[in-house]
């Protein structure tokens, strides 16, 4: 596989395209994470709350990602479900320092997992327990407990603690996602 990848790269073959949905409450750091994953010359310096959604692209060694960076604000959350059909994987971002709204994140996650367009699909879900740098941030284990992630039985999932501002923990998560997508397709 690795050899083939390299070969494909040398030959300038096109990488496989995947659509990923980036979901999570407002201010959780979705846009910051995606910005970090883009090549450094394409990154923006100032990140503002997303209105509606925006489409971003970045590449990993073997895949070309198209990310739907959805706005997490309450009034835009009903937009999410319109993109469920298109998505092949989900990145769900949690602000691990926002203990108060952990129930809201759980509620939105449960609604997402029970949606007919998601429920019976084996799509991988990557969780980022973001803002781990903050003093009162919960650990990724605690976050997965509070969101009851152990109840997700029919989908591969993975949680990483991350600091999107400094880009820590992101690579681990994206590597996992890439492996999942590759096994999913072959």
């Amino acid at each position: 596989m690795g050899l083939f990848d390299k070969l494909a790269g040398w030959l300038g073959l096109k990488k496989k395209e995947v659509n990923v949905l980036c979901l999570g409450l407002d201010n959780s750091g979705k846009t910051t994470i995606i910005n970090q994953l883009k090549p450094s010359n394409a990154q923006t310096q100032d990140i503002v709350p997303t209105i509606g959604f925006s489409i971003e692209k970045f590449k990993t060694s073997s895949l070309s990602f198209t990310v739907f960076d959805m706005s997490g604000q309450g009034r835009y959350r009903n937009l999410w479900e319109h993109y469920y059909k298109e998505g092949q994987a989900i990145i769900f971002v949690i602000d691990s320092s926002d203990k108060l709204r952990m129930v809201v994140a759980k509620e939105e996650l449960d609604t997402l997992l029970n949606h007919p367009d998601i429920k019976h699909r084996r799509m991988p879900i990557l969780f980022f327990a973001n803002k781990m740098d903050l003093r009162d941030a919960l650990s990724s284990v605690k976050v997965s407990q509070m969101l009851c992630l152990e109840n997700i039985k029919d989908k591969p999932w993975h949680i990483c603690a991350s600091d999107a501002v400094r880009g820590e923990g992101l690579q681990e998560g994206v590597d996992w996602l890439q492996d999942q997508i590759k096994t999913m397709r072959t």
Binding site: D26, N27, G74, R101, V103, E107, E108
Partner: peptide, 25 residues
């Protein structure tokens, strides 16, 4: 409260603090 618009805060006779959030739906 925080970033959540529909938050209900209650304190109790025994000195408790309760926070409930109105569901989006």
């Amino acid at each position: 409260y925080g970033r959540e618009d529909g938050t209900l805060i209650m304190t109790t006779k025994g000195g408790g603090l309760m926070v409930k959030i109105l569901k989006r739906t």
